[in-house]
Design a protein around this nucleic acid. Structure first.
Lengths: 120, 120
DNA sequence: CGACAATTTCAATGATCGTTGAATCATGGT
DNA sequence: ACCATGATTCAACGATCATTGAAATTGTCG
């Protein structure tokens, strides 16, 4: 009954994001796996955070989601009991033109990066 | 008099380099500064390691050089008492096409990345 | 040889990282 | 109200990180 609304997670202003923080966030195979899986799925903003449990445990996923989110790479939206994760495509591309594409291509091509088969 | 030759530093085979390790190596402002400064200087293989002392102390520089080297990004050649650092351009571009260019552009455009004025 | 210069190595530090498992929180359904 | 579900938070752990300053290394030159 309380009027307390569900707090959406914190997202940095894209101008405040520094290159070194972006690269640090990309410096982990699980996070690269989240990134390539997200990029491979075409229905934006329809991917539940829980879809990634074959990459890591729920609690570890939450940690990695936070890293990506704090680096300005992803956005997380809470809806009911679920959470949806998506790329901050336009903003990020404006801030760092061309970077995300070559990062995704690099990760996509490499077998050391884990993947989610059936997302969504 | 001994026949012991000066050991050149270790460089990984470029095929053994993993994307996550590359990004981890890029996740530091000093190392991004080394990278953009190297990229801005046209005379390849003519840059002394000691040219970067305005970015950090010699001992800290040595640490960061090792990180970049172990990630397959740079090459270090010992010559006499000096050491020369350079990008592993062709190899790296073959392994991760397009990546280095957009990383350098990203770092070059950002004022948070330190720079060396007069290299060489 | 001995002094010097360029650079690395080593030991130590506090901070952050990736991971685990248990506890907590929020929401929706019965 | 209770319970189940989806997900985060917390405390703990060992590992690695960035940094410092002192010591060691390597090569050059007198």
């Amino acid at each position: 009954m309380s009027e307390v609304m569900k707090q959406q997670p914190f997202h940095p202003e894209i101008e405040d994001v520094l290159p070194a923080d972006v690269f640090a966030a990309l410096g982990d195979p699980i996070r690269l796996g989240i990134l390539v899986s997200l990029a491979a799925f075409d229905e934006v903003d329809k991917v539940r955070c829980g879809s990634f449990t074959e990459l890591a445990s729920p609690s570890l996923l939450s940690y990695h989601f936070a890293k990506l989110r704090e680096a300005g790479i992803t956005r997380v939206r809470a809806e009911g009991t679920a959470r949806f994760i998506s790329l901050r495509r336009e903003e990020f591309d404006r801030r760092f033109p061309g970077l995300l594409d070559s990062v995704i291509e690099t990760a996509r091509r490499d077998p050391s990066v884990p993947r989610i088969s059936n997302l969504g």
